[in-house]
C-alpha cells in the first residue's frame, strides 16, 4: 500500500516537473519577447528622435519665414493644461473621496457612487472628448480653449483621483481615527491631522499618475483644446496665465506629435516630440515611485 502510493507520487512529481519546466520556459520566453519589444521601441524612438532634438527645437516657436522649427508652444500648452486640470481636479477628487470614505453613512449610495466612478475610469477617452465639446466648448461657451480642454480632462481624471485617494484613505488603520476622536477631536480635525497625513503618499502617487494620463492624452485635447502650433502670447504673470487659459487654444505635446506625423508627414519632428514625451513619462514614473516610498514619514 505504502510503496504503491510512493510510486504514484514519484510518477506525478516527474510529470509535474516536466510541466513545471515547460511552463517556466514559456514564461521566460514571453518575458524575453516583451523586453526585446520594449528595448526595440525605446531604442528606435531615441534613435530617430534624438538627432532632431536641440535646444532651439525645445525653446522656440516655429516660424515659416525664419525657417525655425520649435515646440515651445506645445510644451507651454501641456504645462497649462496639466496645472489647470490639477487645480480643479484635486480639491474635487480628494474632497469626494474624503466624503465617501469618512463621512457618508448611506452604504448603498456610497457603493452606487463607487460603481459609477469605476465605470467612468474605464471609459474610452474619446467619449470625454465628445462630452467636452458639447458641454464645455459649446454649452458653457468656452469655445475651443485650453480651459475647455482642462475641464474635459477633469472629467476624465476625476474617477482615478477619487479611487486612488479612497484606496489610500482605506489603508489608514481605524485605530488612528478612534484615537483621535477619543481625545475629543472633531471629525474634520481627525481627517486633517491624522487621516490625511498618513495617506498623503497614496494621494500624491494618484496625482502623479493623473499627470501622466493628462500628458499622454490626445483625443480629448484635439477636440476641446485645439490643434494650433502657436501660442499668441505667453507671459509669466499670474493674470496672463488665466487669460491664456480662456483665450488661447493650441496643441499639447501629444497633439503636436499628431500634427507632425499625420498632417505634415514630418516624422523627424514627430520622433523628437516622442523623445520628449518618453522623458516626461520616465520622470513621472520615478516621481510616483519616490512619492510612494519617501512620503511615508514613519
Amino acid at each position: 500500500m505504502d510503496r504503491e502510493q510512493m510510486s504514484i507520487c514519484c510518477g506525478l512529481s516527474r510529470r509535474r516537473r516536466a510541466y513545471d519546466l515547460s511552463m517556466r520556459s514559456l514564461l521566460y520566453a514571453s518575458a524575453a519577447v516583451i523586453c526585446a519589444l520594449l528595448v526595440f521601441l525605446i531604442g528606435y524612438i531615441l534613435f530617430r528622435g534624438i538627432p532632431h532634438l536641440s535646444w532651439q527645437f525645445l525653446s522656440s516657436e516655429e516660424s515659416v519665414i525664419k525657417g525655425i522649427e520649435g515646440i515651445l508652444p506645445a510644451l507651454i500648452n501641456t504645462l497649462y493644461v496639466v496645472i489647470a486640470t490639477l487645480i480643479i481636479v484635486l480639491p474635487l477628487g480628494v474632497g469626494s473621496a474624503i466624503y465617501l470614505t469618512e463621512y457618508a453613512s448611506n452604504r448603498k449610495l456610497v457603493s452606487a457612487i463607487e460603481f459609477a466612478t469605476e465605470t467612468l475610469a474605464g471609459m474610452p477617452s474619446i467619449i470625454f472628448a465628445l462630452v467636452g465639446v458639447i458641454v464645455f466648448c459649446e454649452f458653457a461657451g468656452l469655445g475651443t480653449s485650453l480651459l475647455a480642454g482642462a475641464f474635459s480632462l477633469v472629467m476624465m481624471t476625476l474617477p482615478t483621483i477619487i479611487r486612488t485617494t479612497q484606496e489610500s484613505l482605506k489603508t489608514v488603520p481605524q485605530s488612528y481615527r478612534e484615537g483621535s476622536l477619543a481625545l475629543g477631536g472633531g471629525k474634520w480635525h481627525m481627517v486633517r491631522t491624522v487621516v490625511l497625513p498618513s495617506s498623503v503618499d497614496g494621494i500624491v502617487t494618484g496625482c502623479i499618475l493623473a499627470v501622466g494620463r493628462i500628458v499622454g492624452e490626445s483625443a480629448v485635447l484635439m477636440f476641446t483644446a485645439g490643434m494650433g502650433m502657436r501660442l499668441a502670447k505667453y507671459g509669466h504673470s499670474f493674470g496672463q496665465f488665466f487669460e491664456n487659459l480662456f483665450d488661447s487654444s493650441g496643441a499639447t505635446l501629444t497633439v503636436a506629435l499628431y500634427n507632425y506625423a499625420k498632417e505634415r508627414a514630418d516624422f523627424e519632428s514627430a520622433f523628437a516630440v516622442a523623445v520628449v514625451l518618453l522623458a516626461i513619462a520616465f520622470v513621472i514614473n520615478i516621481a510616483a515611485k519616490l512619492a510612494g516610498s519617501k512620503l511615508k514619514k514613519h
Partner: peptide, 21 residues
C-alpha cells in the same frame, strides 16, 4: 458637546494605537 465630554472622559484602547508621529 461630545468633544468636551471626551476630553473629560479619556480612553486607552486594547491595542496601543499611537499616531504615526
Amino acid at each position: 458637546d461630545v468633544t468636551s465630554l471626551r476630553r473629560q472622559i479619556g480612553m486607552v484602547f486594547q491595542k496601543a494605537n499611537p499616531f504615526p508621529m
